[in-house]
Design a protein around this nucleic acid. Structure first.
Lengths: 224, 224
DNA sequence: ACCTGAACACCGTTCAAGT
DNA sequence: ACCTGAACACCGTTCAAGT
């Protein structure tokens, strides 16, 4: 009977919050306060609801993070690619790095084995395709992709945590742990480190992703 | 007066638990149940005490993890090193990888900017020394070290989390997320991935750290 | 169908008191 | 000097009930 009324109103209580609304709110919290502040309780407050209402739209906290990840992946810019296959590997990897470096917390979700989420398969596809165009066998192309991914993931994770630690340390004590270690180095025990000690900190804040990537890619396609 | 009694008994209540005992217990918990089980409450139970008693011997949870890290660093084997500087870089990096791969949870402590803890500076020293012996400038030696560290850290973090996710997924659903993604790949949209899809899983469980490291080091010392 | 409140089983850490 | 117990301010999630 009720199906006959012109307006198609689904049965049951009308929703007060939507999944999109939840993801948008999560987005906001993460951007303004960091992932560690993204709790179900905090998120519920943000959308003006209760923690348990969220579970009706999202499987659990992990599911929420996965939705966020998809959201970022869809938005990530796909650069124009150069014709030369080796340069193409570098261009795609760099684009991937840049997209992820802006949201380093995502590495925790990303590296937990769920890969990229489908919408970011573009990056995988382009790197493998370019590696094959470099003359690598399918097997070596996968190996090359993995090496590049390990380097890229490591670079993002290490540098973002270093930055966070540095900021914290400076705010608290005025010096970083590393500065203290290098400042009190015994040159007899660690002669090589002593030689580079005074430049270490300065070189550590530089972004040398590109140079390392070039070296790695050069080495990987060497024998092709 | 009491100072005069032969036995030098320090004043105050005699300790029931020691720092070493705490670290040993933490060690045990981490080895048997994983880091995520290492809570102050669980640890207190393990040493037969209360959570708050621990704070008398350890600054806080982070301090505890740092003690654990030092413990592992001291124990890590230092391999004999080959004379050839390039091979030396590879030998040290591999030893570092092997030591860390056994305890991947340590990466969380390690990458949070406190470096290695002093007792593991040996690894830094040897890599920088070998890089200098390869003919790199001090500046390039630091850059090379950092690239190697990023690759190594990424390899450990990514592969250990992949393994954990794979085990979890197989236990729960019988297939991994990756198997499902690659099983339903559209060959028109992702031709290169489609070409390698059937070998991806197999290649992903292989340990290709050494090959990637060689490629990276080759690229880094190329122009020297 | 969607939302709520109370409750469970946890955390790390502080504080005041006991021996 | 060392330890304890109670308490604070949190978590994610389950369960039973309400609209």
């Amino acid at each position: 009977m009720s199906r006959m009324t012109g307006q198609k109103r689904p049965p049951g209580r009308p929703p007060r919050i939507s999944r999109d609304e939840i993801v948008a709110a999560a987005h906001r919290i993460v951007a303004e306060e960091g992932v560690e502040k993204l709790t179900m309780r905090r998120l519920a407050r943000e959308v003006g609801s209760t923690p348990m209402a969220l579970y009706h739209h999202v499987s659990d906290r992990d599911g929420l993070l996965l939705l966020l990840l998809e959201d970022y992946a869809v938005r990530a810019p796909r650069p124009d690619l150069p014709a030369d296959p080796r340069e193409r590997v570098i261009a795609v990897a760099t684009a991937m790095r840049d997209a992820l470096a802006e949201i380093p917390w995502i590495m925790d979700v990303l590296t937990s084995g769920r890969l990229f989420g489908r919408s970011a398969l573009w990056f995988n596809e382009q790197i493998i395709a370019a590696a094959l165009d470099c003359g690598l066998t399918p097997e070596d192309a996968v190996r090359a992709y993995r090496a590049i991914w390990h380097y890229t993931a490591g670079q993002i994770i290490v540098t973002s945590r270093e930055r966070a630690a540095r900021d914290r340390a400076r705010a608290a004590t005025g010096t970083t742990y590393r500065e203290r270690v290098f400042g009190t180095l015994d040159p007899d025990e660690h002669p090589a480190l002593a030689r580079v000690a005074d430049r270490w900190e300065e070189l550590s804040v530089r972004d040398d992703y590109a140079a390392g990537l070039r070296a790695l890619v050069d080495g990987l396609v060497r024998r092709a």
